[in-house]
């Protein structure tokens, strides 16, 4: 019995120490492990022009302007607290659209525009049939409801 209890205590202590070490590492990693910066984070960090990073957020509704050549596109990315203008030349993914999430790879120009070299669409956690489009998932009640127009 004694050996069993000793081993149980040893294993428990080892697991607690391990979890503690990982929590410390995680909190130190917090910034570095982020896949992208939101516009307000990029501003707070004062990322220098020309430094490569990923910018993520929502495509502001009504901000997408496609040039007549069909390649150049400009839009605003917002995180609710701030926004940045983005310029991109290329084909956007099918799910790229206004009001949806986007992650752009690139760097800031000196004039403050984010010049993207790659655009990825970020999908959200909602799945619904076409008939329900325009309805909204309520995070509090967990019901899909008609979006207030």
């Amino acid at each position: 019995m004694k050996g069993k209890h000793q081993r149980l205590i040893l294993v428990s202590v080892a697991i607690v120490a391990l979890i503690g070490a990982v929590l410390l590492a995680m909190s130190a990693l917090k910034d570095q492990a982020a896949y992208f910066y939101t516009p307000s984070e990029a501003r707070a960090k004062a990322v220098a022009p020309g430094t490569a990073f990923r910018l993520g957020g929502m495509v502001v509704k009504g901000s997408v302007k496609r040039a007549s050549d069909g390649i150049n596109i400009r839009f605003e990315v917002s995180d609710g607290k701030g926004s940045l203008p983005v310029a991109y030349a290329g084909v956007t993914p099918d799910l790229f659209r206004e009001g949806s999430g986007v992650v752009a790879d690139g760097a800031l120009r000196p004039d403050g525009t984010f010049e993207a070299t790659e655009i990825l669409a970020k999908h959200d956690e909602n799945y619904m049939p076409r008939e329900l489009e325009g309805m909204k998932y309520d995070e509090e009640t967990h019901k899909i409801e008609q979006k207030p127009q």
Partner: peptide, 11 residues
């Protein structure tokens, strides 16, 4: 949940 990620949050 902890980090900005490309993968969506849990459904």
């Amino acid at each position: 949940v902890w980090w900005n990620s490309l993968h969506q949050a849990p459904s």
